[in-house]
Design a protein around this nucleic acid. Structure first.
Length: 410
RNA sequence: GCCGGGGUAGGGUAGCGGUUAUCCUGUAGCCCUGUGGAGGCUACGAUCCGAGUUCGAUUCUCGGUCCCGGCCCCA
């Protein structure tokens, strides 16, 4: 009976792993250069951390369990809540802004489909302590830079929820929240029906419907005509000016809502092609969660990148890592180990572990794509040297090990 | 939770009521005990699971499971 892999999980073979690690390290390098520090939080957390953030409803999507001490736990479905929890637990006295990032696996009990797995990886950034558009702009520019580094052309849509919130401020909190969800889903008929249901004022209905359809050039001006000179629009404009300074390309989109109550102002999403229905590779915004977890009133802004989706469409390939294979006649097997030991600080080295004959060892080297082969037999042992063969050109030369290192070591 | 399409050696496939289950590739070895990629030979290796129909099921039916795509959801 063969044991199969759990549904929605994946095995990453050496090739896959090499590609993933390569991109991962490229992304790490970018965020570090923007001054963010990596953190690691637990793979599982108390269930409450996530129900507090997203409501009881999410339990159905979680890998939750009761541990042997009868505690309700869950594998983490995302990392923003854990990072905020960590901040509240141990970083409240740190100098602000705090610039943190993570790259970890997350778990959701969902139906797998293209670009969606039960175990998946998120690369995310959280900037804690600034409510300035400068912080929002830096975060957006960073997201855009990371995608560029991964060779992905995404389309970035940005919005400022302050504007729509201002418009909705005459409604009850619960009604506002419901409307935001409908806007997020782009469920226009549902929205019209709901506005009818709560008997919203006619001017509000018209403005709302028009506002969320505003997208593209010059729409800040249109919004201003519609709603008036409100500070939220000034802040939005300031954000856009900053993005221009960063040279980030964006589309203003008053229809982006991100559906959740804790988003406070700026929100953005980045979409890419080639991913089927799950085309969002990045989403984020400014939010207020720290108070919810028992901390102070600290503004934050951040985003999460869907790493698996990035891998699905990114064209970045790691450099070749072609090994050196030591080929020895049977009489020189021990010498081969000595040579391998001396070469390994400088290059990846294989030795024969199958007790193959000389020819078969060479054939093996060819199969695994070795660039060079170091041959050792009676002649070489006698001369105190080895034969270095370039597998591409077929040229070979009798050299000392030091000369081999000098020639092909890295 | 729902809808559609699929599951035959490690990978890719043929067969579609009775075959020794086809071929390619792969892996290991030999031809070939100091020179790779080619060729020949040998070996290894599969019908997703369970029930039903049938004298007989890889083939037909049903259920499950997993994969692929979509819906819902998407923190």
């Amino acid at each position: 009976m063969k044991i199969s892999r759990p549904r929605g999980t994946r095995d990453f073979l050496p090739e896959d792993t090499r590609r993933r690690r390569n991109v991962e390290n490229i992304l790490r390098k970018v965020v570090k250069n923007w001054g963010f520090s990596e953190i690691i939080t637990p793979t599982f957390e108390t269930l409450e951390l996530f129900t507090l953030k997203s409501g009881e409803g999410i339990v159905g999507e979680l890998y939750n369990f009761t541990d042997k001490g009868d505690r309700e736990m869950t594998l983490r479905p995302e990392l923003t809540a854990p990072v905020m929890r960590m901040y509240v637990n141990e970083m409240q006295a740190n100098q602000r802004p705090l610039k943190l990032f993570y790259f970890e696996n997350c778990f959701r009990y969902e139906r797998p489909q293209k670009g969606r797995f039960r175990e998946f990886w998120q690369f995310g950034v959280e900037l804690i302590g600034s409510n300035r558009p400068d912080a929002d702009a830096e975060v957006i520019a960073l997201a855009s830079e990371m995608l560029k580094a991964a060779g992905i052309k995404g389309s970035l849509h940005v919005n400022h929820l302050g504007v729509i919130r201002h418009l909705l401020s005459i409604l009850e909190a619960e009604q506002q929240s419901r409307i935001m969800r409908l806007v997020d889903k782009k469920d226009d008929t549902g929205l019209v029906d709901y506005l009818e249901e709560i008997d919203a004022p006619g001017h509000l209905r018209l403005k709302l419907i028009e506002l969320i359809s505003l997208t593209g050039e010059g729409v800040i001006g249109k919004a201003r005509q519609m709603i008036g000179d409100i500070p939220e629009l000034d802040e939005y404009q300031e954000l856009l000016d900053l993005l221009d300074a960063y040279g980030v390309e964006y589309t203003i989109d008053f229809g982006i809502a991100r559906g959740l109550d804790y988003y406070t102002g700026m929100v953005f999403e980045i979409y890419a092609e080639g991913l089927g229905a799950q085309n969002q590779v990045c989403g984020g915004g400014s939010y207020q969660l720290i108070r919810l977890f028992g901390g102070g009133d600290v503004p934050s802004t951040g985003f999460g990148l869907g790493f698996d989706r990035i891998m699905e469409i990114c064209g970045v390939e790691p450099d070749d890592d072609r090994p050196v294979v030591i080929i020895a006649r049977d009489s020189a097997r021990l010498k081969a180990i000595e040579a391998a030991t001396r070469l390994r600080p400088y290059m990846p080295v294989y030795v024969d572990l199958m007790k193959r004959n000389f020819k078969a060892q060479l054939s093996y080297a060819n199969h695994i794509g070795a660039h060079y082969v170091v041959m050792i037999g009676e002649k070489e042992v006698e001369a105190g040297k080895v034969t270095l063969r370039d597998m591409d050109s077929g040229e070979q030369e009798l050299l000392k090990l030091e000369e081999v290192i000098e020639r092909i070591g890295n």
